[in-house]
Amino acid sequence: MVEIIIAAGIKVIFVLAAVLTGCAYATYMERKVVGHLQHRIGPSYAGPYGLLQPIADAVKLMFKEDIVPDKVERATFALAPLVSFIPALLTFAVVPFGKDNTVFGYDVKMVLSDLNIGILFVFAITSLGVYGIVLAGWSSGSKYSLMGGIRSSAQMISYEVSYGLSIIGVLLIANTLSLRELVEQQASDSIWFFSNWFIFKQPLGCLLYVTCAIAETNRLPFDLPEAESELVAGYHTEYSSMRFAMFFIGEYANMIAVSAVGATLFCGGWQGPFVNEIPFIGIFWLALKVFVFMFVYIWLRGTLPRFRYDQLMNFGWKVLLPLALLNTMVTGLFVVMGWF
């Protein structure tokens, strides 16, 4: 009993540390990549190549004054950053990050919790994240924030439908909801180690997943909730200091979470060359795939302009949803006919 708790505790600390470090350096990566996309060099003063910039940012945010405006609803105002931050971290509880190993005589499962409905857990938790933004917008007592909150709830409801449907194809093929089994089914011993990845059986599904994931995490070109040219900063206009930082970290944690889930669903998760020979290399492969997904995110941010609100709604309901339904139908047909 005690051993189980200690083992789980070590794993939780390890995963949390990895994710939070990932978030910190995702901000650095974003500034560097966008900088180079825009012919600048990005942060370069703090440390070599500006590598200490995230630490400088964190220190700055921690020592800032926490300003709470007069007209806010205090309880909800304090709750909102937590509600947006915690679900983002909870997602990592079910993402498998390696082949099971033996360490000091103990069998170590390289996943925090191997739920047999893992992917549903991810979607349940993700769907709670919207409350952080909505509550922040509502409780701030500012019209820009309120507008951001309302836009966000409309956007998230609209895109969650397609988001959920986009993965049905994979689930139909794999016939399981467990993330561990999904990863195992994508293993391959041949030299073409990626031949069993679901992205090749579900190219449309993957495209839809990535698109909806960007909308769900409120990133450009879907960042209507915080459109700075229209809404100052949207739902977090009135936030400062660590409360703002929590939104900020939560956004990056969400990005990493949807990237990790996307990598697990479509790109084989921790599978890669030498996973059976070298222990713990699965972590590296998963991190590499998450890195690629994150790069695509930032690349899109640096490339595409923001949608207009009506375009956003049209795109969600009239393009993504029919495509997701079509993908589900065609995949269902293939599965029934036994063509996969």
Partner: peptide, 18 residues
């Protein structure tokens, strides 16, 4: 959680905020 907390109650909040 997905149906009630994630979808229906977001709509409730949406209406309340509108």
């Amino acid at each position: 959680i997905i149906v009630y907390s994630g979808a229906i109650l977001v709509l409730f909040l949406f209406v309340i905020m509108l």
